[in-house]
Design a protein around this nucleic acid. Structure first.
Lengths: 342, 342
DNA sequence: ATGAAAGCGCTAACAA
DNA sequence: TTGTTAGCGCTTTCAT
């Protein structure tokens, strides 16, 4: 029990050579005799020697770990993105430390602070919905710590980012709704601080304008992510004198809760109202009716973010101009928008 | 850019005192003069000093991090359990390093090995479905590294574990099915290596026996977690000459795919066949019909596992007898079992 | 071809 | 009350 790990010193003492020699032998250093090397290798195997990563990290003044900060891992997009990050990061020899901000800016700040003191090699971050102050990110940059945003980006900080074209995705979704004959189209947005929600709002507005439809401000809602908030905002839409003919939601969760409000109001989907979500969560094809939604490449998003981050980490001397990678998303058309009023 | 972190040495030099004095002053050591302390505190604040966790960990020969190894974080139970772990662990000053085995034993072994060399303080593990060899766990124990299993436990290793009473939960579910008039009841189990699947099988068998129902071995299936595997096993059940009147599934995902096979076969749920799942994933109340399922306290499971682990870590000198914490689960009855044949 | 020594940031036993 | 020293495990420069 509690057997100490074998160290270089242990090997050196048993072999009556110096620690330096053992260290070199293990890395197959050219100027160590074959005989010594073999003795070292043999003993290392016998004693189950494994280099102490913690000591290595300490010496390098940097952990071989990446800090990943996401709002919540139960959101399918983040769970899949994390797999993408892990996949690439592990292959490159990095562990990932996943932390959830739980949509709290304070928590996000605290996490980043802690991980800084742990000397993580870099950060991959998707903002909490509350985050409206960006000092903790600029602080990272001042310290020269690599940083990549994904999905929920931060326009005010000039860092690498991986996103989809939220404007276009939203534009296309609205365009699809219009093509099925809807004209009174509502937008159930996320919290007003979430920049991507606003990008989607812009796409929504532009699509309406391009089709000669006047934007009715009463059809735009900004809700929090909890069920109650969504329901209350959705009710404002559907219990009004003129319920919308279609609703574009910021996320599948919001779309689903909006569907609940619609059903509660007695509106049939898609006959009375069409619904479009965002993220293509697996649940969207299991509900009734299956939900039209925008598929985001979560795994690829994560993988790309990890690539950009590792690139930064491994080129910490050279200055790389921050890059914006825009991945393509796909509108998945299902029954929730399957009607034709034309 | 790339400004080095302030160290104790920096503070010491500026103040013309020794590093040791600074170190003590920062911890409010009783034998340092108030004057010195205040000077140190002031300068530390000015220079934004933060202790280097990596150096601390190195010195303690242990990271302030816990390794968490789960099959997949997209499974809702694990996502919620992780939140519970994170919650408690962070409060106790530990970070968590989450790794996914992706149901692969090789990956699980590799992860554990890596985290050992990183000197994590302990492990919280839920086995991959493939894991049928337990050397990597006994290795941890030989090294005296704290270990807690949760949900998918390992009976062959004597370690702390946090589980629900799978036998009882399954027994109760079958009992419920019988009470609604079903007698031909099938079990769609997980992979045969998954011990909790077998515990549930035992509960299923006992409930049948206790109600005077002969167990028909053809009604017991063991499938993998991918959709295709579930569908093919489910089809064996429903396309037979005598389809079951009810099906207990090892997980909600299996239950949902089984429902798909039932619908494909033209069986109505619950009129022709009742279905029960496991885990109470959020999706279960959104599908048609809503799924009867067993709710597991994921968050509490994680939190409890973290408690047990931290207890081990912080009492590494004393030997604590491994403990088995059994949390209670709840059968949530929904429409998928809402019929009465009696 | 090998060894000695310094140093990464911090703490603690021992000295003064 | 403060300083000196050694050491955690490893790499690397400089000697030999």
């Amino acid at each position: 029990m509690n057997k100490r790990q074998t160290t270089l010193k242990d090997l050196a003492e048993k072999l009556n050579v110096s620690v330096a020699t053992v260290s070199r032998a293990l890395k197959d250093h050219p100027r160590i005799s074959q005989k010594t090397k073999e003795a070292v290798w043999q003993l290392a195997a016998d004693l189950d020697y494994e280099p102490n990563q913690l000591a290595l990290s300490f010496r390098n003044r940097q952990m071989n770990a990446i800090g990943v900060v996401v709002p919540k891992i139960i959101y399918h997009l983040y769970a899949t993105a994390i797999s993408g990050i892990e996949d690439y990061a592990n292959a490159q020899g990095y562990n990932i430390i996943i932390c959830q901000s739980n949509e709290s800016m304070e928590r996000e700040k605290a996490i980043i602070n802690e991980l800084i003191t742990s000397q993580v090699a870099g950060f991959i971050i998707s903002l909490s919905s509350e985050t409206n102050n960006f000092d903790h990110f600029t602080r990272l940059q001042k310290k020269g710590i690599p940083l990549v945003f994904f999905n929920r980006e931060c326009e005010d900080v000039d860092a690498d980012r991986v996103i989809i074209d939220n404007f276009q995705a939203s534009y296309d979704a609205v365009d699809h709704l219009i093509s099925t004959g809807c004209r009174r189209i509502a937008y159930m947005g996320g919290p007003a601080e979430v920049q991507i929600s606003n990008h989607r709002l812009k796409g929504y507005q532009k699509a309406l304008a391009d089709n000669g439809i006047t934007v009715d401000e009463r059809l735009v809602q900004h809700c929090e992510f909890d069920k109650e908030s969504v329901l209350s905002h959705a009710r404002r839409l559907v219990y009004g004198p003129q319920p919308p003919e279609a609703i574009l939601a910021f996320s599948d969760q919001i779309a689903i809760n909006t569907m609940i409000a619609c059903k509660e109001r007695g509106l049939k989907i898609p006959e009375d109202v069409s619904i479009v979500g965002f993220n293509n969560e697996p649940v969207t094809e299991l509900i009734e009716p299956p939900l039209t939604t925008i598929d985001q490449p979560g795994f690829l998003m994560g993988k790309t973010a990890a690539e950009l981050l590792v690139r930064q980490i491994e080129n910490s001397d050279t200055v790389i101009k921050p890059e914006k990678r825009i991945l393509s998303s796909t509108l998945i058309i299902r029954k929730s928008t399957n009607r034709n009023r034309l």
